[in-house]
Every structure is written in C-alpha cells, then in structure tokens.
Nucleic acid binder design. Structure first.
Length: 608
RNA sequence: GCCCUUGUAGUUCAAUGGAUAGAACGAAAGUUUCCUAAACUUUUGAUUCGGGUUCGAUUCCCGGCGAGGGUACCA
C-alpha cells in the first residue's frame, strides 16, 4: 500500500480515537508538502475543526502526535497554521523504492479476459485531402488515450471511420476527371493523398471563379442580406456544383464508371495515409468505411420514420424534432434522398455494436462537433441503442495558427507530412551540431534522430490539455530544450548510459545491503515520492481521459531527476549502500519515464 | 439572437477549494580536471473586470468585457 493511502487510513483512526468521530475517507487525503516547508506529506486539518472544537494548530498537533505514536513510518511532524506536515522515515522510502523497482510494469494494469470493452474512434479522415496538424492532434490523442484506457485494465478496440464518400470526394473526382489529363501519383511522383488534395483545391478555385461570373454586377454594393441571397442564387446556378451533385447521386446508385474512378482515387489516398500513420506510430484494430455504413444509417432513419420517431417534409427530406430535448430540428436525409453526416454516424454505430460487445464508446472528435454528438447521443437513444445516452465525446480543442484557424481550402494548413519531415530534419541538425551520434552507424543514428524528432512533435501536442485550443507557430520550430520530448528523452539516454557503465563495472542493480538506520537525502526522497505517484497519475489520466497529466508528470519527474543527477554522484559514490540505492533509484526513474512516455506513444532512445 | 467552450508572466503551457500561483521559451548572468552541458544554478515577470459562497477561490455561483466554436439539406 502506498504511504499516502496508509497515512490517510491512520488519520481516520486518529480522528476516531481523539474525537470519537467518523469522517469520510475523501476528507483525509494527504497531499504533497510544498517545497518551502519541511515534510513529505501534508494533511489540511480545517475540515475537522468542527469535530475537534479546538484551534487549527491544536487539532493538527493532536493528530500529528497520535500518528507519530501509532505509525512507525512517521518519523516526525510539524504544524504551521492548519497544516500538519508529516515526515516519513528513510527506511520506509527505501522500501517503497524496492517495491517500485521490483514491479516491471509499475502503475500499469493488464486487462483481464472479462474486462470492459472500450471502443475508441479516432483519426476519421476524409479521403479528399492529406492530413494536417489538426488530424495529428486527433491521432496522437486517440492513440495515447487508447494506451491509457488499456493501462487502466480495459480491453480497448481502436477504430477509425473513414469518410470515403460524399460530396467533398466528388469534388476531387470531378476535378481530376475534367482537368487531370490522366495524371497519377506514380507519374507525378506525388504522395497519393497530396495528389488528391491538389484536385480538391483545384475544384474550389474553379468553383469560386465560376460563382464570381454568376454574381450580379452590383454585388459589392448590396447589404449583408442581399449579398447572402445573391450568393445563394449564384450557387444554385453553378454548373460545376450541379455536376458534383449529379456525381454523388450516380455514386449512390452504384454507377460502374463512377465507382471505379472512386475506388482508384481512394486507393491512392490510402497509400498516402498509411505512410503518415506509420510515421506517427498509430494503428487501428478495425477500420470502418462510410461507404459501407451509410446505407445502414439510412435504413435506421427510415425505420425511425416509420415508427414516428422522425418526420418528413413535403420535399421528402427527413428530420428529427429535438425541441423536447432543448435542441433544434435536425436533418437526417436530404430531399434528394442522400445521407448526411448524422445518417452515417448512426449506421456506423449500429455496425460497431453488431460486431463487438462494446461496453463504452469514445469518439475522439474536435470540439466543433459538440452539438453533433449531443444530437447523436439523443438520436441513438431514441432509436433504441441503450448505450446511446452514455457515449463519450472526447472533445478536443482546435490547433490554431497565430493568424487564426487553419483552413484547408485557403491553404493555411500545416501539413502533417511536412511537419514530420521538418521535425526530423531539426533533430538531425541538432545532433550533428552537438556531435552526439558520431560513434554510431548511419542506420542507428537515423533511428535515434527519428525517435527524437517525432518525440518532440508528440510531446509538444500531448502536454497540452486536450480540451483547450492550442496555438502552433510555424515560424518558430518546436523546441528541443525545456519542457519538451527531447528533454525527457535525453534524461532517459543518460540513465541508460549510467546503467551500461554500472553493468561494465559488474554492479548489480539491487539493494543488497542492510538499510536500517540509513538516511537518504530529501532530493532522493522527493524522487521516490514522485515515482510512487505514477500509479495514481495513470488512474487519474484514465478517469479524466487526460493524456496531458502523464506528460506533465513525466516532465516533473525528469526535472527532479536532472537536479539529482547534477548534484549527486552515482557510480563514484564510495558508500556501498548509497551506490546500490542510487542505481536502483536511477533505473526506476528510467523505467517510469519509459512507461509514461510509452502511454503517450513516445519512444525513448538508449542514447542520443 | 440563442447555445457551448475559453480568458494565468512578453510568448507557450501548469496548478483534486488549500500555505508565498508553478514550469518552459525569450532576455540577463553563471556552472565542465567529475556518471552525456539536448543538462544544472541565479535574476526578470501573470490570475480580464465587478460581485457572491467559504476559515480559505485561478478553481464553485451570478453579472460585465474579450476570444473561439456551433446554430435545419457542408463534413
């Protein structure tokens, strides 16, 4: 049992013994003592004043004295205002470290065979353009989340819904058909997803030009309302858009030529995506395609219509009335019978729960979809999916540029592949400048460079609270110093180096000398205390679905260890016990760094 | 208009209702005969405003101001 939990239980007993009163366990949570005070763990006694009927100081003193007398792990205590600071004995800390050291997967729970099944949907790209920084955030969060949920003892299914059909895909298809002249990724030497993306942009360019010709000559002079209706009119007259719509209808009818074109173009995109996914180190257990699920959704919507859950308008469109739930009316099928985003999600949900015994469903989707998932939850519930109400929308914030939001159609996106290349290039440049990898073979060095470059990117994104919007400045490259991935990786590399040297000396990493009565430093205790917390941090990250907790935790650990590494010697320590102890401490820190970073999907190198 | 999210040093990020609000970057100054200086040590500097609840509020509640997102045939 961890010392903080042990103390909390003892404190309960203390309060019972002193004041003959039972209090809630949650009220006696010990917290870490602030650096500027003497002690390891602190109990805030204010909540007990009503029970003790004395001053905060006296209450703290009474509890402190009782704990000192009745708990051998407590070596001393002091009281400042209403804060009871407890010191734990060195031997107890050393025992804690031994326990952490002996557990190869400290803090990580392996899922049992009958553990709950959690399905996590993430990535969910459209097949009309390459991935950008926003997708990167999604993928990294989804992947990290899957690791964390699994480490909390759940069975996890990682899934991806590929939006491989729809009006946006038809735009790329039409543009390629009209202006592609038979070009292919192979012929042009372009990555498939970028190749397709170019046609999407091309369509938009031509479409905008066409709209311009359709607007009235006095357009600029109209008021806002007038401009809007003029624009709507022009859009309805667009030949290009009419062709796209026709293409979508043909696609839905299963027109052979269109389907063949569609399959060919999507296969190019998938090749490109696979490469990006591989570079990001993300993967999926099961991939769904919208083209295979949207009909299920349509069916389900029509079923709901028959049951009177939904209603249709004169033009044939189908709607859900959500006003009783405090929301609006929601379109489920267009008047031409084609499906929308919502239709597809209903179908996908249905297929997933047919395929798997899912206990919990988590959707990793940006916060711009908050309303969508609120509605989806209600609709699934209405359609009789008992899990509908409980779906979790892991809603993360947008990645913004200093100039504002990224817009793919305006070309203000940070491309995922470019960014990855840039990060690796920076890592290469840095390690060349420092001359760190000269003794290694090219392939070894290149692998480390990749680990560092990708690590910097991943950590940069994952250390930020997922719910918040974050800013990325493309002008300033992502840092390699300070609170960064490479900072942590570097500490790990140094740890591995020390342990290699210890091994060469023939040192065994284990405490073999009697440690009773030995005193260790406050810095060392502080590190053990942080190591011990890993268990709780993993739990909390799982409970809150918050990978940034892990990232910030590992940073704190490394920061503390670096200070220790600077101020204390490990291999040159003459005292036999201390040397053994510090080696165990060092190895344990390395292990927790590796496990913690592993949860984030970040590799750590043995040298760098 | 209505709904949701958000506001912390110059910048990017932290802080289960707890003590003097932490880091990093930037700027300035230091540390290498010693386990990897991608490190370590100083200095600098912040809770949008006004109320309320509380022994105690960056945190919870109400209001103002600012930012972002959503709001019936884009996904």
């Amino acid at each position: 049992m961890n010392i903080d939990v042990l103390l909390a239980n003892k404190a309960l007993q203390a309060i019972k013994a002193l004041y003959n009163h039972d209090v809630d366990f949650a009220q006696v949570q010990f917290q870490k003592t602030k650096k500027e005070f003497e002690g390891h763990l602190t109990l805030v006694v204010f909540p007990f004043l009503k029970i003790s009927r004395t001053s905060p100081e006296q209450t703290a003193k009474d509890i402190g004295a009782w704990l000192l007398a009745n708990e051998p792990a407590v070596s001393s205590y002091n009281v400042i205002k209403g804060f009871l600071n407890i010191m734990i004995s060195s031997s107890n800390w050393i025992e804690t470290l031994s326990r952490i050291c002996s557990d190869q997967n400290f803090g990580i729970n392996k899922p049992e065979d009958n553990a709950p099944v959690v399905m996590i949907e993430y990535s969910s790209p459209n097949t009309n353009k390459p991935l950008h920084l926003g997708h990167v955030r999604n993928n990294l969060l989804g992947n990290a989340l899957a690791n964390i949920v699994k480490a909390n003892g759940n069975r996890v299914i990682k899934t991806n819904i590929v939006n491989d059909r729809g009006i946006h895909i038809c735009k790329s298809m039409l543009a390629w058909q009209k202006w592609g002249n038979g070009a292919t990724p192979e012929l042009t030497g372009k990555k498939g997803d970028h190749f397709i993306g170019d046609y999407y942009v091309e369509f938009d360019k031509r479409y905008k030009a066409e709209i311009k010709t359709l607007l009235p000559s006095n357009y600029e002079l109209l008021d806002e309302k007038g401009q809007a209706s003029a624009l709507a009119l022009a859009e309805s007259q667009s030949v290009l858009m009419a062709e796209v719509r026709e293409m979508l209808i043909k696609w839905e009818r299963g027109d052979t030529d269109i389907r063949m074109l569609w399959e060919k173009m999507n296969s190019w995109v998938y090749e490109g995506f696979d490469e990006t996914y591989k570079n990001l180190g993300v993967s999926f257990d099961k991939i769904y395609y919208e083209s295979e699920t949207y009909l299920e959704g349509k069916e389900k919507v029509l079923e709901g219509l028959n049951k009177g859950l939904f209603y249709s308008k004169d033009d044939g469109s189908v709607w859900a009335d959500l006003t009783l739930d405090g929301l609006d009316h929601k379109l489920l099928l267009r008047s031409d019978g084609t499906s929308v985003y919502m239709t597809q999600d209903i179908g996908t949900a249905k297929m997933r729960f047919q395929d798997f015994q899912i206990d919990k469903m988590i959707y990793v989707v940006g916060n711009e979809q908050n309303y969508h998932f609120q509605v989806l939850s209600i609709l699934l519930d209405r359609l009789g999916f008992e899990w509908g109400k409980d779906l979790v929308h892991f809603s993360y914030g947008m990645v913004e540029l200093p100039s504002g939001k990224m817009k793919s159609r305006e070309g203000t996106v940070v491309d995922a592949d470019d960014l990855i290349d840039e990060m690796i290039a920076t890592a290469r440049k840095t390690s060349q400048e420092l001359g760190k990898l000269e003794s290694l073979s090219d392939s070894q060095a290149e692998n480390i460079i990749r680990i560092v470059g990708i690590g910097a990117l991943k950590y940069f994104i994952l250390k930020v609270d997922a719910r918040k919007n974050m800013t990325f400045n493309p002008q300033e490259s992502i840092d390699f110093n300070g609170n960064t991935g490479p900072f942590i990786q570097y500490a790990y590399a140094r740890i591995r180096s020390v342990l290699r040297k210890a091994l060469e000396e023939g040192c065994e990493v284990a405490i073999k000398v009697d440690y009773q009565g030995v005193e260790i430093s406050e810095k060392e205790i502080s590190i053990i205390q942080i190591l011990m917390d890993f268990e709780q941090v993993v739990k909390q990250a799982g409970k809150e679905l918050n990978p940034s907790l892990i990232a910030n935790y590992v940073y704190d650990l490394v920061k503390e260890f670096n200070q220790f590494y600077h101020d204390y010697t490990i291999l040159h320590e003459p005292d036999k016990f201390l040397k053994q102890f510090r080696l165990v401490l060092t190895e344990s820190v390395g292990k927790i760094i590796r496990l913690g970073m592993g949860l984030l999907g970040i590799e750590v190198p043995d040298r760098m």
